[in-house]
Simulated scan of single mutants.
Amino acid sequence: MIKVAVVGASGYTGAELLRLLACHPEVEVVSITSRKEKGRLLKDVFPSLALAYPDLHFEDPEPKTLARKADLVFCCVPHRAAMAIVPDLLAAGVKVVDFSADFRLKDPATYERWYETKHTAPELLDEAVYGLPEIWREEIMEAHLVAGPGCYPTSVILPLHPLLSQGLIEREVIIDSKSGVSGAGRAAKLPLIFAEVNEAFRAYGLPGHRHIPEMEQELSFAAGSEVRVSFVPHLLPITRGILSTIYVFPRPGVSGDHLREALKKAYQGEPFVSVLPPGELPDVAHVRGTNQCRLAVVPDERTARVVIISVIDNLVKGAAGQALQCMNLMCGLKETMGLVGPALYP
């Protein structure tokens, strides 16, 4: 059995991770931490998890204690907080999957510019592997530190990486993404209460959302030269799910059908990415609660553009499920273990 700990387990991603881990046949959750909820039983904070974890309680996130108990630690704390604890965990010989942005960006100056704080562990940036298994599977299998991608970047990089790496599209991309409110976290915030979100729909994070440098880093690597994206996120009045609409210009001689076939070939045999046939469009309801990403390619001959639509569950493929997928690879387990359940419907 793989012994795991979850640091920052009192948020939505921590709770979602524990939901998934409860069905994993090769994992034992040995510790959960939260300074705010220290001493409380998990079932009192999340009654939905009572049957799976009747006696588990929140502890302080002390690295030495966690290292004695766990083989691998999921770090579900915000940026800034992660880089304060991850170096000590790695030094103690524990593998780490980090959910924050602290180890996603290879250039510490870029991190400091976008996150407005000094990076205190820049020596780990080269070691960290970007946790998108469909792209970096071999590297994740050998990693001790995996930087979990952001939810929006996951929905964007999966469809664009193969196309840019093959030189099939131009390097100027427009991305229009919509997310459920759980993507903003569990903390009480006035703009996210029911009366403010219900029957509302708004853009936010303009003119530059913090996920932009992450997208541009990975897409530029794929293309072999600089890629610039125009990215606008929106808040949907739903709990979970991301739908990204991506506008690309194919290179001369490349059709929308070519792009669809390129994606099908790139993800042939991948358990969690599917490309829909012509005429079918993805829906966030079809991936709710799953680790799936569903893609559609729609040519627009009138404008010479191609529209790509991507949907994921922001809490699963966009966070906890992808982290679990990485853990399976890091620990030599079957990649799909604990992740093959059907979508939640209705």
Rank of each mutant, 00 (worst) to 15 (best):
2 I>D: 08
16 E>Y: 03
20 L>K: 11
26 E>R: 14
30 V>I: 03
32 I>D: 04
44 D>G: 08
58 F>R: 02
61 P>W: 03
72 L>T: 03
76 C>A: 15
84 A>F: 02
88 D>P: 00
91 A>V: 05
91 A>E: 15
94 V>T: 08
95 K>W: 10
98 D>A: 07
100 S>R: 03
101 A>V: 08
108 P>R: 04
109 A>Y: 03
110 T>Y: 01
111 Y>D: 07
113 R>E: 15
113 R>W: 06
128 A>G: 12
131 G>R: 10
139 E>T: 00
142 E>L: 15
142 E>F: 01
150 G>L: 07
151 C>P: 00
156 V>H: 07
158 L>G: 00
163 L>E: 11
164 L>V: 07
165 S>I: 04
166 Q>K: 15
167 G>M: 08
174 I>N: 01
174 I>H: 02
175 I>W: 02
193 I>Y: 12
208 G>T: 11
213 P>Q: 03
220 S>D: 02
221 F>Q: 13
227 V>E: 09
234 H>S: 13
236 L>A: 15
238 I>A: 11
242 I>A: 06
244 S>K: 05
250 P>A: 14
251 R>I: 00
259 L>G: 11
261 E>D: 15
262 A>L: 05
266 A>H: 09
275 V>K: 06
275 V>L: 13
281 L>I: 13
282 P>M: 12
285 A>F: 04
285 A>D: 13
293 C>S: 13
295 L>Q: 10
299 P>D: 13
300 D>Q: 13
311 V>F: 01
317 K>W: 05
319 A>M: 09
336 T>R: 09
336 T>V: 12
342 P>V: 07
